[in-house]
Amino acid sequence: MTLASDPIAHGGALQQAMARHGGTASEWLDLSTGISPFSLPLPELPLDVWRRLPEQAEVARVCELARRHYGGAVLPVAVPGTQAAIQLLPWLTPNAETVAVVAPTYGEYARSYRRMGMIAEPIRTLEAAASIQAAAVILANPNNPDGRETMRDDIFGFARAHRHRLVIVDEAFADMRQDLTMAGAAGAEPNLIVMRSFGKFFGLGGLRLGFVFAEPRLAAVLQERMGPWAVSGPALAIAAHAFSRIDLVGELRTKIDSANQMTRSALNKAAVPIAGETALFFLCEVGDGAAVAERLASHRILVRAFDHSPSRIRIGLVPDELSAVRLRESLRLAGARPS
């Protein structure tokens, strides 16, 4: 059994893979995360951005740009990555005994609550939370790792019927599916919280930046728990640049669409069934996920296997046609076939 104090395996552990299988970083094809393989071109930043602490006016300006970009109804809270916000979620219901998590999903939601002594009850659907005395319900939309989508009307209906509960929606993978976003309702619906990740779509996971849309009382709790200067000046400057360049955002969307089609084609040609997907990754049936992931690693391709879905692996997007061919042939050699 995984305890609250036990670390959770995540994608992106390239150094560990290199230590086990050898090779240099440039020899590996890291498909273990849901981060875009294409990064936003970075602006030249003035030295002052690095040298001084960010002013509150700068934070407010970037939050306003984020509100427009994500279609929010209220100014979001800027956080140093949505992972940091997940650690703070239990403070929004400090006296709760139980929360519900629509699962299987990203493991850090449950872990953050269990660390605080709360019960994180896994449920299969949002509607199943109606029968549980849970102070909060956490939903990833689209979900990680299977790409399951919950329509806005369903989330609206649940939030309005259960105003005594917090409904927390993680939209880390919603950038290519704006028709799913609830950012425009968070704040207007006082029990609705929406988290957005900056790094995944913009290919800048190392920047550690995210935004949380919530009504003022809950937003104030997050701000208080984070303390001053939680987000760095360079991160704010890069976000301001990104949100102001509609042309670059459009180019990224086009590149991601193309990479998605290349990856899909490689999987189809390797006869690997797709069990779920988002614009940034595919969940695939391969028979024995851990074994296939290990064989792919011997070919220096890094993917994710899951304890909760042992027959499956998650594969991120290839950046180019050469990588697509490499993935296709390596999957064949690894014996990636459903049972």
Rank of each mutant, 00 (worst) to 15 (best):
V221S: 10
L218R: 04
L296P: 05
A17H: 14
I238W: 01
Q133L: 10
H162D: 05
E171D: 06
V49G: 11
T105C: 07
A13T: 14
L236E: 01
Q261T: 12
L267E: 05
G233C: 10
P190N: 04
P273K: 06
D175M: 08
P43S: 12
I138S: 12
R332S: 15
E127M: 05
M195P: 07
D320K: 13
K269H: 09
S232H: 06
I86A: 08
P7D: 01
R124K: 14
L31H: 10
R67G: 13
H241T: 02
R332I: 15
G289Y: 00
A66G: 07
G227F: 03
R337W: 11
P228Y: 04
A25C: 03
R326V: 15
V62C: 08
D179E: 11
R111M: 06
L92R: 00
W28M: 07
V167G: 01
G199N: 05
A271H: 14
L92E: 00
L47W: 15
A270M: 00
P94W: 00
A266S: 02
I313Q: 01
H10W: 09
L89E: 00
H308F: 15
V59C: 11
E121G: 09
Y109E: 06
G199T: 02
P338L: 11
P142G: 03
E44P: 08
Q15M: 14
F198C: 03
I193L: 04
V102W: 00
S258R: 06
F211P: 03
V102S: 05
P145T: 11
G157V: 01
R68H: 14
V212H: 05
P122E: 03
G12S: 04
S197T: 12
V169G: 02
L126W: 02
T105M: 06
Q133R: 08
N191T: 01
N268W: 13
Q83C: 14
G206C: 09
Y109I: 07
P338K: 10
A239Y: 08
V286H: 00
D179M: 12
P7F: 01
R264G: 07
H10G: 11
L89Q: 02
A161Y: 08
P104A: 01
L75P: 03
L45Q: 10
R328W: 13
K255W: 05
S311T: 15
S339C: 14
A305L: 10
I8A: 09
E321M: 13
V74N: 06
P104M: 06
R245H: 00
H162R: 06
M116P: 07
K255C: 12
D175V: 11
S244T: 04
D170W: 03
L89H: 08
L29G: 03
P338F: 11
S131V: 14
P234N: 05
G227C: 04
L65H: 11
W91T: 12
E251P: 07
F202Y: 15
F306S: 08
G157K: 02
P216M: 04
G157N: 08
P338M: 12
G23A: 07
L252W: 05
L92Y: 02
D30F: 10
P46L: 07
L166P: 02
C284Y: 12
T181H: 02
